[in-house]
Design a protein around this nucleic acid. Structure first.
Lengths: 138, 138
DNA sequence: ATGGTAAATGCATATCGATTGCAGTTAGGA
DNA sequence: TCCTAACTGCAATCGATATGCATTTACCAT
């Protein structure tokens, strides 16, 4: 368990419970964003069954602390990925099979300034996803 | 009602029913993406009450025909905007009050080629939203 | 015009993802 | 080791969206 995560938890007055630890390990071992239901299913298989509600509550808390990113792929459910040790990036998803692939790029650093000037908003974040057809489905 | 919409409906074997017509008028009169519930509420006020289910079914159909765009702002519900007569664009939403503002820009034309080369996907679309704090809420 | 038919609608009900209330449990500092 | 705030599980609930089915409606061919 990375020290930076432990520190953030402590700073937020959060405890490192067994269910929480198991959940964080699942998240860290997942190379792509996963849903709450998937986290729950993997914990069940791995003999660390915790309640789905606990998964949701922890994901919400981790998001508030900035430790996980929500990824909205318009599937009717959210996905989450840990932030620690990973570059800021985006995703592409196949409209056929649902395959998700990381895109190790972000063209929006400069654009953010422009948006702030245009709108007078203080930009805090952005969501960027691509959709298309993977080699197998196209 | 724009001819291009009528043509698309006809091409898809769809009828121009009274509920559908009223719904399309609401969508066209909305400058920003709106939710199914909002469409339903406005129709109710405007003495054209139609069932919420009909709103959902029509939005799904219009999306399949490519006449409306879904806009996912991570609110737990989708928003929709008509496509006809509007430039491709994106949105910024305030994390405080929910205010949505159009961004008349898209930096992704070139990037799409790069993504296609990197992933071998056939890119069909993308979603880009900004989040931040509007002048009132910041 | 009118009649036949595929498409569309409304109502009731169901599903799915996510949230809340509450009583009992646990981590971790004093 | 004890005390308390944080956490958990279970049940119930919610909000958004989908489905089954009987009835109605638009539109094309007569």
């Amino acid at each position: 368990m990375p020290a930076s995560i432990l520190e953030s938890l402590k700073a937020g007055g959060k405890k490192l419970t067994k269910p929480r630890k198991a959940l964080l390990e699942i998240l860290e071992s997942s190379p792509l964003p996963i849903t709450a239901a998937e986290v729950h299913a993997r914990l069940r298989k791995g003999r660390h069954a915790i309640d789905l509600v606990t998964v949701y509550r922890n994901l919400a808390m981790l998001q508030e602390l900035g430790l996980v990113n929500p990824v909205g792929l318009h599937e009717g459910q959210m996905r989450y990925e840990v932030r620690h040790g990973r570059e800021h990036h985006h995703h592409i998803q196949c409209r056929g099979c649902g395959l998700i692939v990381d895109l190790l790029l972000c063209p929006l650093k400069k654009l953010t300034d422009l948006v702030e000037r245009q709108t007078k908003f203080a930009v805090e974040g952005h969501a960027l996803e691509f959709f298309g057809w993977c080699p197998q489905c196209r």
